[in-house]
Amino acid sequence: MRVAATLKVNGTLYPLEIEPHASLLRAVREQIALTGAKEGCDDSECGACMMLLDGEPVNSCSYLALQAQGREVTTVEGLAPPGELSDLQRAFLEHGGVQCGFCTPGMLISATALLRRPGTPSEEEVRTALAGNLCRCTGYEGIVNAVLAVARSRSEPLESARTRGA
């Protein structure tokens, strides 16, 4: 039996009726119609469904929607204001980090969480942070290069201000 629950996704509150066994992925894709997060393996191996839950990457295919009540859910659609791209999203385009695009939302979510942690990640740390995201095109080089480029530009505030055109 569905129960009333409110989910906060990308800053907006959505009053919903949710089935107790429903995953966060299903609620967000089918009831809120945000389809950026993808269903890949449906059991937490591939990372295509990743969202941020209170800032941490979660495999939303295997997370109960009702456990996300009262928390901040961020999907790939929420990484930048509508019509805009974050510096990370731009870097994915510049460095060829997107091929078929299926893994991209999850990759962006994992990398966003990584880049919010203090310090500048090494290549090893970037690869570790993305270990839960599979790219079936095997386009890892471009993805890792994009994340490293953003990590570097954010650690050089003046430099990044210039490339952002600020």
Binding site: G47, M50, E56, P57, V58, N59, L114, A131, G132, N133
Partner: peptide, 9 residues
């Protein structure tokens, strides 16, 4: 353990 997501949750 697992991935960042597994360790976070």
């Amino acid at each position: 353990v697992g991935s960042h997501a597994t360790r976070a949750f």
